[in-house]
């Protein structure tokens, strides 16, 4: 690491601009970086390349490149109606979860941010305490509640509503300070003009808080898209989501390694695209959650 500890140029306006990244990279730093990239992407590339090979190729040498490149595994997945059914289920459940959690979350966070009332802090504590209840603790009764009492077993809503409920505490905890930080002059002006509080919420507060809503929405969407435990208990057959489909495919066709790798790789793509498109939002949301 000593390679980077070079004396820096004299302090100047230019240097003051950015010097958090103190120290440049020497060859060792680049070597470590390269190693990290290889270890991080290795498994992902193994999956993607493995999907272009045959099982014979994989058995002969697991570490080789496809030779020849075969597209039939990927064609098989894309031509598999099951795959599209799972993708549809995942999408619909993630969308319902996101809409419910964002709407209910911002509605709850608004009075907690803007109103003065005696029970405000205790009410906020209810959401804070909610953070301490992981879904795993309630999972068995939740299964009974959704399937028997509510009759929502094996439905989109049956998974989306509990997911939204468990995502609410984080959402409210992130949104409240965000709403507090919004300028409130517009709202006050509207109030003087006689607009009702509910109208102000819809017409002024909600549009202003869009960036915050997108952040919590993306986090909720990704969490739902990747969720496994609750769908595992509640969904069967044609209602399964992609993670369930991937897991079941890999046990059912365990001999067809190339097919499993192709299926898994395609299932990765939506989350990766969403991440690359929304990277800023996801990162700032996570950092916001930690900094408070």
């Amino acid at each position: 690491m000593s390679t980077a500890a070079r004396p820096r140029e004299r302090r100047s306006g230019l240097m003051a601009r950015r010097s958090t990244a103190y120290g440049r990279g020497g060859p060792l730093v680049y070597l470590v970086a390269l190693l990290v990239v290889a270890l991080t992407l290795g498994p992902v590339l193994y999956g993607a390349l493995g999907g272009f090979r045959s099982n014979e190729q994989l058995a002969r040498d697991p570490a080789a490149l496809p030779d020849p490149w075969l597209t039939r595994n990927y064609e098989g997945v894309l031509g598999n109606s099951g795959f599209w059914t799972y993708a549809l289920n995942s999408t619909v459940i993630a969308l319902i979860t996101t809409v419910v959690v964002v709407l209910a979350g911002v509605m709850a966070a608004y009075p907690l941010a803007r109103y003065q009332f005696k029970l405000r802090e205790p009410l906020f504590m209810v959401f804070v305490l909610g953070l301490l209840f992981p879904a795993a603790v309630a999972i068995v009764p939740l299964f009974i509640l959704v399937t028997r009492d509510l009759g929502l077993g094996n439905t989109w809503w049956g998974v989306a509503l509990p997911q939204a409920a468990f995502a609410l505490p984080t959402t409210v905890v992130i949104l409240r300070p965000f709403l507090m930080a919004l300028p409130k002059e517009l709202e006050e002006a509207a109030m003087i003009d006689g607009a009702s509080r509910i109208r102000i919420f819809w017409r002024i507060a909600l549009p202003l808080s869009m960036p915050g809503l997108v952040t919590v929405g993306v986090l909720a969407f990704v969490a739902s898209w990747n969720a496994y435990l609750l769908p595992l208990l509640l969904l069967q057959g044609d209602m399964r989501t992609l993670p369930l489909g991937v897991a079941d495919f890999s046990t059912q066709y365990s001999a067809d390694t190339a097919g499993v790798l192709a299926f898994t790789t395609i299932a990765m793509i939506p989350a990766l695209i969403l991440f690359l498109a929304m990277q800023r939002r996801i990162v700032s949301g996570l950092q916001g959650a930690v900094k408070g």
Binding site: T40, L41, Y228, P243, M268, A271, F275, Q279, I282
Partner: peptide, 12 residues
């Protein structure tokens, strides 16, 4: 790149 694994589902 370092953040990619975090975004993937644990199952995948």
């Amino acid at each position: 790149i370092i953040f990619v694994p975090y975004v993937l589902a644990e199952v995948i």
